[in-house]
Design a protein around this nucleic acid. Structure first.
Length: 461
DNA sequence: TGAGAGTCAATAAT
DNA sequence: ATTATTGACTCTCA
């Protein structure tokens, strides 16, 4: 059943498209392509799919749920991955993996991490490399700890009273270390309300909000910036998921719209959001208008939109003030926040876990991986074979000398060329299957050997 | 100036 | 111990 014959044609298609990619800058100089170059000529990547696969590999390592999953579990943490592979901090990586933006919405810069991820996924030794890093880190850590322990022995007693023990750096940090603002829930609520009223508040409104909430103006400004862009992203992922879902051809495809990500728990509603038109200016779109006007209307005194917005937002936030819903209108506003969520959601479209339907390269991973391990253990770059079947060669050929080009070709292929593998795979080859299985056993055997020989470090059972 | 995109980094939450 | 969240920064761009 889990066969998808069409996928092969899919990938073939993408392959051909790929091939036709014009290849901009390929100059004959030595070094490999900079990522930027790669990014520049990268075909469209499935960011969502990429993050999904990365997460898989990072956690339980999908190398076939079977056999060696025993000892290959929880290979690496995203921190390490992020820092070494992507050059990003843990938080950024977490965010990126959880809420990837669609390729076409990404800037060149923003695409970079995804290209890196794709490259990494295509790297046969990816996991091993990471584990190596981890090992090294651990070693370093141990060392450090050792030395510090011995130190602390002597310091132990001296550290009574007040100690400036680590006079090294963090002494003069009285208050220069700004204590990071944390907005109270009520404050967030208020800001969200304000946002619903007016996603792009005027300086005046911002000023007002700041004053009334007793926040710095810059905080309010930042909050709006952040909220807007985060809301936008939320929409993206919804879009993606809706897309992948509807693709299955369920009956209610047309709706798609309603699925509010909404973790009902919080007031985190991004409700007003719909009134968004990022690419095309005109924030004053119909919907935005509708929102604000509606609010205004309900209030009665629609004179000053800005002022209004602030006022209203606050009113909600002030626990003490809770004047309350005499006005049905008011209720309406409130209701908008939580009512719909509950009632209209028979089928909870959880944003988190995606019903998967990733078009290409589902199986691809395991194929390449097995090949990979082989090469690793054998010491030969076996994945050449994969490469040799290159039909894509036309891409790199563009103008470069063969030698210089080959490097680039490599990276290009690793980036773009995952389709051949796919196509060959789908050919229901039971024989191939068996071969693979045999190979796997072999690999496992060797891995175990290798593992026992080495410090048993990384194999967390 | 101000918007959006990417990130960082402190700190919350698991 | 990791991962998730989020206010603030840094860059571009217009």
């Amino acid at each position: 059943a889990p066969e998808s014959p069409m996928s092969s044609s899919e990938s073939v298609k993408s392959l051909t498209e790929l091939v036709q990619q014009p290849c901009p800058a390929i100059e004959t100089s030595h070094s490999a392509l900079s990522i930027q170059e790669l990014v520049a000529m990268s075909p469209e990547l499935d960011t969502y799919g990429i993050t999904k696969r990365v997460k898989e590999v990072l956690t339980d390592n999908n190398l076939g749920k079977s056999l060696y999953s025993h000892f290959l579990t929880k290979i690496v943490c995203q921190r390490l991955f992020g820092e070494t592979i992507l050059g990003l901090t843990q938080g950024s990586v977490s965010d990126l993996l959880a809420r990837p933006k669609p390729w076409h919405k990404l800037s060149l810069k923003g695409r970079e991490p995804f290209v890196r991820m794709q490259l990494w996924l295509n790297d046969p030794n990816n996991v091993e490399k990471l584990m190596d890093m981890k090992r090294m880190e651990k070693k370093a850590y141990m060392k450090r700890r050792h030395s510090s322990v011995s130190d602390s022995q002597s310091c132990e007693s001296s550290s009574a009273g007040i100690d400036y023990s680590q006079g090294a750096s963090p002494q003069p940090q009285h208050q220069l270390k700004k204590p990071r603002v944390v907005l109270a829930p009520e404050e967030k609520e208020a800001l969200k309300r304000a946002y619903q009223q007016k996603p792009y508040p005027s300086p005046k409104t911002i000023e007002e909000l700041a004053t009334q909430l007793n926040l710095k103006t810059s905080t309010v400004i930042n909050w709006f910036h952040n909220y807007r862009s985060r809301i936008r992203r939320e929409l993206f992922i919804e879009e993606i998921q809706a897309g992948s879902q509807s693709q299955a051809g369920s009956s209610d495809s047309p709706s798609a719209r309603s699925s509010r990500a909404a973790h009902s728990s919080e007031g985190d509603s991004c409700d007003g959001v719909d009134a968004e038109g990022p690419p095309d200016g005109k924030p004053s779109g119909p919907e935005a208008d509708e929102l604000s006007s509606a609010a205004a209307k309900s209030q009665g005194g629609p004179a000053e939109p800005a002022f209004e917005a602030g006022e209203e937002a606050l009113r909600g936030a002030r626990p003490s003030e809770r004047a309350e819903p005499e006005g049905l209108e008011d209720t309406d506003d409130e209701g908008r926040l939580r009512a719909p969520r509950q009632s209209s959601l028979p089928a909870p479209p959880r944003p988190g876990d995606a019903p998967e339907t990733l078009p290409n390269s589902a199986t691809e991973g395991d194929a390449s991986t097995s090949a990979a391990s082989t090469s690793v253990l054998t010491g030969e770059s076996s994945y050449k074979s994969k490469e040799s079947s290159e039909k894509i060669s036309s891409v790199p050929s563009t103008s470069s000398t063969p030698a210089a080009g080959s490097q680039k070709a490599n990276s290009l292929q690793s980036l773009f060329g995952f389709s051949e593998a796919a196509s060959s795979r789908n050919t229901r080859d039971s024989s191939l299957r068996k071969k693979k299985a045999a190979n796997l056993n072999n690999i496992i055997h060797r891995l175990e050997k290798a593992a026992s020989r080495e410090e048993a470090v990384e194999w967390e059972f």
